[in-house]
Simulated assay, not measured.
Amino acid sequence: MEQAYRKKFPLSSKDYKLYEEVGEGVSATVYRALCIPLNVIVAIKVLDLEKCNNDLDGIRREVQTMILIEHPNVLRAHCSFTAEHSLWVVMPYMAGGSCLGIMKSDHPEGLEETVIATLLREVLKALVYLHSQGHIHRDVKAGNILIDTNGAVKLADFGVSACMFDTGDRQRSRNTFVGTPCWMAPEVMQQLHGYDFKADIWSFGITALELAHGHAPFSKYPPMKVLLMTLQNAPPGLDYERDKRFSKSFKEMVAACLVKDPKKRPSSEKLLKHHFFKHAKSYDYLAKTILNGIPPLGERFKMLKAKEADFLVQNKDMYGDKEHLLSQVNAILSFNSLGFY
């Protein structure tokens, strides 16, 4: 896989053969594909530029950042190019899909602690690298944690336009947000003094809860309710009674991340030294556990699409307009199709 980065990927859609869909969002569809000249399987995100408000130059700059980034735990882009009214972004194919997709298919109640520790340690390595380079990820969540068949973990969608890769959970920038802000730090919501890399640490803590329970805290509530609950309530966490299956060190690690004052949250580098991560195993442990026996990514995506369609048919009278109905699908099923890839 790493050797593929040194190869020159072609910049024409004619040089790629698209196979099945493995994800979709508001304005993008993701395909498993073959790069014909190199005979390499890749993932291609096809962005419909007519559905996207962002300027093409801005998106190109952000994709270029993805191409330049170099760390084993951050998903890079091989190349990007335009084809008619679309932008194609060619990336490595992570055949296990996302942690969100795996949970929706096989672990709706969440993952076991050793798996979580192993996943989160790899994500934290990615954040240490990004923060050391002066970057804020801004979209840490289970849907952006991708796994390959060998168990290798990569954090995806760094630095890329919200319009391009966001599924509607939130469309993020430094100044505005739309949608369900379940992973968003309080200081990002308030927009008073700006925010820094500590916002990623809050999102990392929320992601830990998402992996533990199968969904993010407050995910069933509408956006304004989530905003108010995040700002007014005590931070969410692992309950000492309800979450007895989890260790004290896991509960303490999550609590350290979910402190409302960003100055009191640890840096990614300091957090990586937390004793919770002593539970983590080598990434091939993930291949033997959560990836063992699961259907191919395209099949899992198709099954959840069918589940969404059934929900729409059964509940169209209750919720009325399609937009409201789709928001209920996201809330009730936590269906984040692009999160599959």
Rank of each mutant, 00 (worst) to 15 (best):
M1H: 12
E2I: 10
P10R: 02
P10Q: 05
D15R: 06
L18M: 09
Y19S: 08
G25C: 08
S27G: 10
V30P: 03
L34C: 08
P37E: 02
A43D: 02
K51W: 11
N53A: 13
N54M: 08
I59N: 02
Q64H: 14
H71N: 14
H71A: 07
N73A: 07
V74K: 00
A77F: 08
A77K: 04
C79P: 06
F81I: 06
H85M: 03
A95G: 13
G96C: 04
L100M: 13
S105P: 08
E109S: 14
V115W: 05
R121E: 09
V123S: 02
L124Y: 05
H131M: 03
R138P: 07
K141G: 11
G143Y: 03
G143R: 01
I147F: 13
G151L: 13
A152G: 12
K154P: 01
K154E: 09
L155G: 04
F158S: 08
A162H: 06
R170A: 15
Q171H: 08
Q171W: 10
N175E: 08
V178K: 11
W183R: 03
E187S: 01
Q190G: 00
Q191G: 13
L192F: 14
H193Y: 15
G194N: 06
Y195I: 01
F197E: 06
F204L: 09
F204K: 02
A208L: 08
L209V: 01
A216V: 03
K220Q: 10
Y221R: 05
L228E: 09
A234C: 06
P236A: 04
G237E: 03
E241V: 14
D243A: 09
D243I: 02
K251T: 04
D261F: 06
K263W: 12
L271K: 05
L271P: 01
H275V: 13
F276R: 01
K278F: 09
K278W: 06
Y285H: 14
I290E: 05
N292G: 02
P295A: 15
P296F: 05
R300G: 09
K302C: 13
K302L: 10
K305I: 14
A306E: 13
F311Q: 02
M318Y: 15
S327Y: 09
Q328C: 14
L333E: 11
G339H: 01
G339K: 04
F340L: 06
